[in-house]
Write a protein that binds this DNA or RNA. Structure first.
Lengths: 206, 206
DNA sequence: GAGAATTCTTGACAGTCGTCCAGGACTCCT
DNA sequence: AGGAGTCCTGGACGACTGTCAAGAATTCTC
């Protein structure tokens, strides 16, 4: 049986969570534009329809806000590639779609990826960031590993390296592409595409 | 002919440069411990024998100080591997020395490498950092390429990918190793060693 | 519609930041 | 020795930060 108090309580929790989501969305926008170090709570609040005090009503402190944002970022980020894995019918098709997916998100979501690398670097100094950052890193590694595994499977081959090594190299490739793309290099995305296909071929064998 | 004024002037320039070097050394130390965002000029000065005002006597502003530090970092960082290239007589020896060199510097100079990745991320937001960061990145890429080229040469083989791709993958490998090593993983360095040898073999062919 | 609970605003607080500058301390040359 | 130039100190400035709390505004409940 649900009492009236229960219903009130649940509605409040929902509304509370919804506000947090809303605020985090705006915060993520501001963070991706200015970077972690340069973004203040007042600046975040200015890009929402609320005042800076509201942030402390919904989040204990700055770290909790940032971590909430990063967790949300993870949710949208990882599962974008699972459709590629599911739709692939040939290794060539998978490779092409994967390479194109990387290039597309490198272009369209450049600011968000930039923020991710910023926060991952910050986690090297700010210990409170590490658990969440590590968790996101691991889920990205699993995502890459699903791609590699499916690619090997479709071609009747087997992966020749560990999941960690595969992720490290693809991540390095992507980060370098992002760096050059944001610096204005027109070749960055093409190099990313060809590099991804090249790497994909080299982490599996006959 | 050198006038007395010339001699005075040159001595002053030398002393001026020497002070800058000294201050930059301390600054680099503090930066590597605290990270770019958390390091203030006062904190840097406290780790030297001078007051915070002195920093503005030798450097125009914070950016100039940081950039001077980064340039010095480059000098020590890149050329550590050239001895490895020069000493190598067999491909196996080169691979072993290179892998060991990576693991050693990942352990011993972890804080400096952490700072490098921090600053490279900052350059994505702070445009004034980009030229110097790009220059260091390029010199690191050339360093990797010398390793790869020599490895291929010693084995009578040829590189199968671009210099950019080789650097991106090795950099990704190293960064991931640093991340895990600083997080306390005991496997990080071993994975780095085996990963490096694995990659080295996959960027060249018969 | 009154009263209670919530959501939000506003201003203040104590710190810290980069920068600047007046002037003391020092070094060097004649 | 003394004066000129160099080097360095320490305090002050205004701007900005995260945090907090008092109370206004809004929403909800009965």
């Amino acid at each position: 049986m649900t009492t009236a108090a229960d219903r009130v309580s649940r509605r409040q929790v929902d509304k509370f969570e919804e506000r947090r989501r809303l605020l985090a969305e705006g915060a993520l926008q501001t963070l991706s534009e200015r970077g972690y170090a340069r973004t203040s709570l007042r600046e975040i609040a200015q890009n929402t329809e609320f005042s800076h005090g509201t942030l402390h009503y919904y989040f204990r402190d700055k770290v909790e806000l940032i971590m909430y944002c990063v967790r949300r970022y993870k949710a949208v980020c990882v599962q974008r590639y699972d459709a590629i894995v599911a739709d692939a019918e040939t290794p060539e098709g998978l490779a092409a779609d994967f390479a194109e997916g990387l290039a597309t998100t490198c272009r369209d979501d450049a600011l968000m990826h930039r923020l991710w690398y910023d926060l991952r670097s910050q986690s090297l100094f700010e210990e409170s960031f590490r658990p969440d950052v590590a968790e996101i890193d691991e889920s990205l590694e699993r995502m890459i590993w699903r791609i590699v595994g499916r690619y090997a499977e479709l071609g009747g081959r087997e992966a020749t390296c560990s999941s960690a090594l595969a992720y490290a190299t693809f991540d390095g490739l992507f980060q370098q592409a992002l760096l050059r793309h944001l610096a204005g290099s027109g070749l960055a995305l093409d190099d990313l595409r060809t590099g991804a296909r090249h790497l994909l071929d080299h982490v599996v064998c006959a």
